[in-house]
Design a protein around this nucleic acid. Structure first.
Length: 754
DNA sequence: TCGTCAGTTAAA
DNA sequence: TTAACTGACGAG
């Protein structure tokens, strides 16, 4: 019997086998999308293997083949298919769910439509409309249950909310909203949404500039690898303004010359409109820009055009890694060090690592570009797995801004009385305002105060499910919010533990900083930029106001450090550099360093020389010392040495554990032991551990049920390196105890796979 | 007795 | 993941 092995979007590690009916036999290929019935459901899957053989006892036939357009068949080209299988094996992720990453999201709707045989191919793109939900003033007559109550509370707190946003969080939001609407508690309305903002204005073509010598050398090296079809990873190290983008553009041209396509990954596409603009200026509209604002239909259109080879360049965030680009020749990862390349929910993957993998599989070139390369990339260079290309800083002549340290141990508070607005910072703000220039203040804490403590018994208000301190948000009705899980509750009247009414706000968030500054500088226009005020596209609105000089002082989180030219900013203040340094992450120092270098780069790139003030209690910390001198190499050297000293692998912190033993009881014991070790290690480290256990072999089926229980995370809530070493030793020891059939992969280096 | 709920199981 | 099934419970 002819069988098709199909990866279906269910969390099972194996594909399902179906009989290929005669009428489809000629057309079903590897990578084809097929409609299958699984239990009582109908699902769209991808054919990952074909063959004759013994059918499983309950084999069913394929229902249909979805690749109706011959030019787009099969849906997933061989190269992409092979890559997805590697990714699935590497991250122990269910094959079907991985395949789904690469399929256009409209498939759900298609499958449903097929089921109802209502499917009709509508050409053209419908108007962009979005349905929103607004709470009315009426009060519910009787208590509501479950989702309806939660949704009502949410809409009342947040205000007008798109229905799709609600559906992300509550599965049956649509039904619940319908019910609420019938009770008169909410109303819905449909509004038109602005067209795709990236293509709103025509792109004036640019003229390719003359390359500098280092640019030319880099371009040449890349073109040579492309011409030789030699899979090569390049680390392109150059500060902002050193011309990395021009190298990307030339590399794409070189790939094109060989009729090969390119993928460009950026950390957050919404924050990089000017990079997109440069690509459009060079290549016109022949660039697929994949961003979150696309409607499913538009996304599908892009997908098809890429698949058909009509477009050969795709730009986007993480997920653009799975673009069906034809004859892939090049993958660029811009701002390679950025942590947002790591997908942390659903299928977990690191887009930078997987970009290297996909490029190698396709005999393509991978360029990792950054002004502050990650230690992982440096490690690849040192182990000969990547080649280093350096663009010296030609902008150095324009003078880097003067970076000054404000030692909070010695410096008293400024006139506001708040220690976090020190005297030097206060004076610098005054000077900036007097000069009619702009200032950016960076504070990595959203909300008003990051903690609320009972003054009677000392208890912190904590999230019931995450046991993390709740942040007080003044706007949106004085509520406490958990920044991990979005749990929300009104500000309590009394302490939950001792009923005392004296609850004190602790610490400083962006909301409070904004308020304090508005009071201290009444003549200044103070604005705030963080996730609470700006989501996705609205970031641009705030930055637009900044560029138009409608804002004097901008207070913000991470967001203010990324992208965008703000030429009138002459002062950048880091309120508390130690906040970034004490994050519960072994990469805290590295990230703080990246942040400080980036933030410093924001000052004075325009008409006036800039000033950067970094407030800290630990001015001697290497991340701060080296950021002061803009010395990336010295920092990397120091950090690598530090990590070596505690025995931490240079690559990744994730521990994957595979248990492969035929004896169920042994496999079970191994799982139990590893889970226990992780739990204990995590407890000792004051946090959780990040590891996953997968059971392979004959014991897999009986233990599959228990998989949930064996999934655990180690997240070190301590920057204590000795603790880190103890944790790793504990996991190593456990590996020794259950040695037979247990493999652990703690040091994950994707290039080892190649 | 029926409906609801939480927990279990199988899906090719 | 999802849907179907199971047994336990409590309201009527």
């Amino acid at each position: 019997m002819l069988l098709a092995h199909v990866a279906l979007p269910v969390p099972m590690p194996h594909p399902y086998s179906y009989a290929i009916p005669a009428r489809l036999a000629a057309r079903v290929a590897l990578g084809s999308r097929v409609l299958c019935s699984l239990g009582s459901r109908r699902l769209v899957g991808v054919v990952v293997a074909k063959g004759e053989g013994d059918p499983p006892p309950k084999v069913k036939p394929l229902l249909d083949l979805l690749d109706d357009e011959p030019s787009l068949s099969p849906a997933l080209p061989e190269e992409l298919l092979a890559f997805l299988r590697d990714l699935s094996a590497y991250y122990l992720a269910p094959i079907g769910e991985v395949m789904r990453l690469a399929l256009p999201p409209i498939e759900r709707a298609v499958a449903r439509a097929l089921e109802d045989s209502l499917f009709e191919t509508k050409k053209g793109i419908s108007a962009r409309k979005v349905q929103t939900v607004i709470a009315t003033d009426s009060v519910e007559a009787k208590a509501l249950g479950g989702q309806a109550a939660a949704i009502l509370a949410h809409v009342r707190a947040i205000g007008e909310t798109p229905l799709t946003r609600l559906e992300e969080r509550w599965k049956s939001a649509r039904a619940a909203v319908k019910k609420l609407a019938s009770l008169g508690l909410v109303t819905t309305s449909t509004r038109e949404v602005a067209a795709d903002s990236f293509f709103a204005s025509p792109a004036p073509r640019d003229v390719p500039p003359e390359l500098t010598a280092p640019q030319a050398a880099a371009t040449e090296a890349i073109a040579a690898s492309l011409a030789a079809k030699a899979a090569t990873t390049f680390s392109l190290h150059g500060v902002t303004g050193s011309g990395k983008t021009e190298v990307y553009l030339r590399a794409i041209v070189a790939a094109r010359a060989q009729r090969r396509g390119s993928i460009v990954l950026v950390p957050e596409i919404a924050l990089t409109p000017q990079l997109v603009a440069r690509f459009r200026a060079r290549f016109g509209d022949d660039v697929a820009v994949l961003h979150s604002g696309l409607l499913p239909r538009e996304r599908l259109a892009m997908w098809k055009r890429l698949r058909a080879g009509e477009l050969d360049v795709a730009i986007g965030a993480r997920s653009a890694l799975f673009a069906p680009v034809r004859d892939l020749g090049l993958i660029v990862v811009d701002e390679e060090h950025d942590p947002s390349f790591k997908q942390e929910e659903g299928i977990r993957y690191h887009a930078r690592d997987m970009a290297i993998l996909r490029a190698h599989r396709a005999s393509a070139v991978c360029i990792l570009g950054s002004a502050t390369p990650s230690l992982e990339t440096e490690h690849l260079c040192r182990t000969g797995k990547a080649k280093k290309l350096v663009l010296p800083d030609r902008a150095r002549a324009q003078a880097m801004p003067a970076v000054e340290i404000v030692d909070l141990r010695r410096m008293g508070p400024g006139p506001t009385g708040d220690k976090r607005i020190s005297l030097p910072l206060h004076r610098a703000l005054e000077a900036t305002l007097a000069a009619r220039a702009q200032a950016i203040l960076f504070l990595n804490r959203r909300g008003f105060s990051p903690a609320v403590r009972c003054e009677a018994c000392g208890e912190l208000c904590a999230c019931p499910s995450c046991s993390v301190a709740l942040t007080f948000h003044k706007r949106h009705g004085e509520r406490l919010r958990c920044h991990y899980c979005d749990y929300e509750t009104p500000f309590p009247e009394r302490c939950a533990k001792c009923q005392s009414p004296s609850l004190a706000l602790e610490g400083l968030g962006t909301e409070k900083l904004e308020e304090t500054l508005s009071a201290a500088f009444p003549e200044a226009r103070v604005a705030r930029l963080d996730r609470d005020v700006a989501t996705g596209r609205t970031v641009d609105t705030v930055l637009g106001r900044m560029r138009a000089r409608e804002i004097d002082i901008l207070v913000g989180t991470q967001m203010v450090t990324k992208g965008h030219d703000l030429p009138h900013v002459t002062l950048v203040g880091v309120i508390n550099a130690d906040a970034a340094l004490s994050l519960p992450d072994f990469r805290a120092a590295e990230r703080a360093f990246h942040l400080l270098v980036q933030v410093a780069g924001r000052a004075g790139r325009g008409d006036a020389p800039g000033r950067v003030l970094i407030q800290t209690y630990t001015p001697d910390h290497p991340a701060i010392v080296h950021a002061l001198r803009h010395d990336v190499n010295a920092f990397i050297e120091r950090e690598l040495a530090d990590r070596r000293e505690v025995g931490y692998p240079p690559y990744s912190r994730v521990a994957l554990v595979r248990v492969d033993h035929p004896e169920e009881s042994v496999a079970r014991d191994a799982c139990t032991l590893l889970a226990e070790v992780a739990r204990q290690a995590a407890e000792a480290a004051g946090g959780e551990a990040d590891a996953r256990v997968q059971v392979l072999g004959p014991a897999a089926a009986p233990l599959a049920r228990l998989r949930q229980r064996f999934r655990f995370r180690i997240m070190l809530r301590s920057s204590d390196r000795a603790m880190l070493r103890r944790t790793l030793l504990a996991v190593e020891r456990a590996r020794g105890q259950v040695a037979r059939g247990v493999r652990t992969a703690i040091d994950i280096d994707p290039v080892q796979l190649l």
